[in-house]
Lab assay of single mutants.
Amino acid sequence: IRKQWHEDITQDLRNHLVHKLVQAIFPTPDPAALKDRRMENLVAYARKVEGDMYESANNRAEYYHLLAEKIYKIQKELEEKRRT
Rank of each mutant, 00 (worst) to 15 (best):
Y45G: 03
Y64H: 12
V22L: 08
N41R: 09
H16E: 15
E50C: 03
A24K: 00
A68V: 07
P27M: 07
P29F: 15
I1V: 05
L21S: 02
D36F: 10
V49W: 03
S56Y: 14
E80F: 07
T28D: 13
V43K: 06
Y63G: 00
Q4N: 15
A61F: 03
E50G: 00
P27E: 14
N59M: 00
A68I: 00
Y72L: 13
E50A: 01
V49E: 04
I9D: 06
V49R: 04
E69I: 00
A68P: 04
K3I: 01
P27F: 03
E79G: 10
Y45M: 12
T84L: 12
V43Y: 13
H19P: 04
R47I: 02
H19G: 09
K70Y: 12
D36A: 07
N58I: 07
S56M: 05
S56I: 06
L78R: 15
R83H: 15
K81C: 03
L17P: 03
E69V: 06
K35Y: 08
A33Y: 12
Q11E: 11
K70D: 01
P27K: 07
N41F: 11
V22H: 00
H65W: 04
R82C: 11
I25M: 15
K20I: 01
A33P: 11
D8R: 03
L34D: 06
I1T: 08
H65S: 12
A24H: 02
E62C: 00
H65G: 11
T28P: 05
L42Q: 08
E77F: 09
D30R: 07
L13I: 14
L78K: 15
E79N: 08
T84I: 10
D52R: 06
P29L: 11
M39A: 03
D52P: 02
E77Y: 07
I71Y: 01
N59V: 01
R14T: 03
V49A: 04
R2G: 08
R14A: 00
K81A: 10
D12M: 00
P29W: 15
P29R: 11
N15T: 06
Y63A: 04
R83K: 13
N41M: 09
K76Y: 11
A24P: 02
E7M: 05
R38C: 12
A61Y: 05
K81E: 10
E62D: 01
L13S: 08
A44P: 00
T10R: 02
N58T: 09
T10E: 06
W5N: 08
A32D: 14
Q11N: 11
E77C: 14
M39W: 11
I71N: 01
K35R: 12
M53F: 13
R38T: 07
K3E: 07
P29D: 14
P27S: 10
D30M: 08
R38W: 05
K48A: 06
Y63Q: 01
L78Y: 15
R14C: 00
L34P: 13
A33H: 10
K35W: 05
W5E: 11
E55K: 08
R47H: 02
I1K: 11
K48V: 04
I9M: 10
Q4A: 14
L17Q: 15
I74H: 14
D12T: 05
Y64R: 09
T10Q: 01
D52E: 13
